[in-house]
Computed example of a mutant assay.
Amino acid sequence: MSLQHPIARVRGLGSAKNGTHHWWVQRLTAVALALLTPWFIWLALCMVGADAFTVRATLAQPLNAVLMLAFVFSLFWHARLGLQVVIEDYIHTPWLEVTLQVFVMFACALAALASAIAIGRIVFTG
């Protein structure tokens, strides 16, 4: 039993003032994905049975390349934010939580970078 007042125990443990930003970014990426996913599914279905040249030519069109980049970046950013919340909520070992957070951050960044490079190679090489 502690003689310390409850306010004294929690002082300094309050809001980090970034929860609202995280919430908004997660919602904005969700809206972006809700708009871009039907386009991506439509594009993928149109490419069923197409040869590699046709697929590359379609993805090399400026509008399709920009939309694909937006889809990829929104997807990995949204995934990182969602996994961050899951790790914060369910992993209670401090060293494991930090390790997983760093791993998720680097994995999503590397995957987004690799995707951007792949899209760039499709667009800028013939």
Score class of each variant (00 low, 15 high):
F53G: 00
W39N: 02
T29Y: 00
P38F: 04
A44N: 11
L35W: 07
A60M: 06
M47R: 07
W39T: 04
F73I: 14
V55C: 02
I41C: 02
V55S: 03
A65E: 07
L69K: 09
W39F: 11
N64C: 02
V66D: 00
V48N: 04
P62I: 12
V66W: 15
D51W: 14
D51Q: 14
V31H: 02
Q26R: 05
R56S: 03
L28I: 10
Q26F: 01
F53D: 09
W77N: 05
F40I: 06
G49K: 13
L36R: 05
W42T: 07
F73D: 01
W42L: 06
T37V: 15
P38H: 09
Q61A: 10
L35Q: 07
Q61P: 01
R27H: 12
R56N: 08
L75R: 03
P62L: 14
F73M: 08
V25S: 03
P38W: 07
T54N: 07
A32R: 01
V25C: 02
A65G: 02
R56W: 08
I41L: 12
L28R: 07
L36D: 06
F53K: 12
V25A: 06
L59A: 06
A70S: 14
L45R: 13
L63T: 12
V55H: 06
L75C: 10
L33H: 02
S74W: 02
